[in-house]
Design a protein around this nucleic acid. Structure first.
Lengths: 164, 164
DNA sequence: CGCCATTTAGTTGTGTGCAATTGAATTGTG
DNA sequence: CACAATTCAATTGCACACAACTAAATGGCG
């Protein structure tokens, strides 16, 4: 109640916290979507979307993986990956094959076309870097901070929200 | 061509750029989703989602706004806002009314319930801060960098991707 | 062997997010 | 006033993202 017209001498009013809060979560949200917008333009040549590109990056780096492992690398569950992988399969970039050892598991394998796409993808980072014009060290530092933030947030999410 | 087996003395091979690229865009993506996860927990009490919370923040701060202005604050277009606002209206938090001056425009107005929800939302930033346990100065700095990044990315997106 | 908890993908439903289009309303120009 | 261009919200179609659930398969245990 005293938040709307706070007298001087007090700490920052609670009302201001909503503004600050908006800046933080919104900045992250906006940056993520802005990044998606630039990638969308660059990736149009490759015919894949930004999340699909992330999947391909993991496959190019680690080779064939079961859906479970893929999800761990990307922090995504099967509800997101299943339809996404079907689209990649329809595009001829991956195959999905039941493991013979464990029929619960589905191996995601690169096709020849999927492996070949990597050559064209090599230009993507350069074009993104050129678009942003941001220093590599700056990016590296930002990544470190974001990863720390993500780790803290994930830890907080599993514990559940502490009650006040 | 010389990327696969690069001789010594050259700069970082293009192949490594894909890994670096993955780290950057993925870190941002993961942080954004991790933030969403924590907000989802905290906001469950208020009965709204993370993007809906962002809309309410803008309305609480700036008062009633047309959809267009709301979208400018949030960097969202009507394709995203229209269904979102209908859900907020169904929840009784906002009303949507055609402007009498310009019948193309739709004014989004807080209902009494929507305005009252602000009191409960005042605890959200505190609970988020407690969940993350991250220094406020760190957050402020991160926000500054992210906003700069977003600005650069948006500028790059409108120009279109420069060809190599 | 039979039974049950666990693991793993898949499916369904809800909610963004964005491109492209539609249609109504307004503005500028002659 | 008439008419073309512009503005604005809504709609449509597609693609994540995640919670909740289903179903198949595995592994352990008696």
């Amino acid at each position: 109640m005293a938040d709307k017209s706070y007298p001087g001498g007090m700490t920052a009013p609670t009302a201001d916290w909503l503004r600050l809060d908006q800046q933080i979560c919104f900045s992250l949200n906006a940056a993520s979507r802005a990044f998606g917008g630039v990638y969308r333009i660059v990736l149009k040549d490759l015919g894949i979307t930004y999340p699909q590109y992330l999947v391909m990056l993991v496959l190019w780096e680690h080779g064939d993986l079961p859906v479970k492992k893929l999800g761990e690398h990307l922090r995504l569950d099967s509800g997101t990956l299943s339809p996404l992988l079907k689209r990649l399969e329809a595009a001829g970039l991956v195959r999905r094959e039941r493991s013979t050892h464990d029929e619960r598991s589905v191996e995601v394998r690169l096709t020849d076309a999927g492996a070949a796409l990597r050559e064209r993808a090599l230009q993507v980072p350069r074009r993104i870097a050129r678009s942003t014009g941001i220093d590599l060290d700056e990016i590296r530092d930002l990544r470190t901070r974001l990863d720390a933030l993500t780790e803290a947030l994930d830890a907080a999410a599993v514990e559940g929200a502490p009650e006040e």
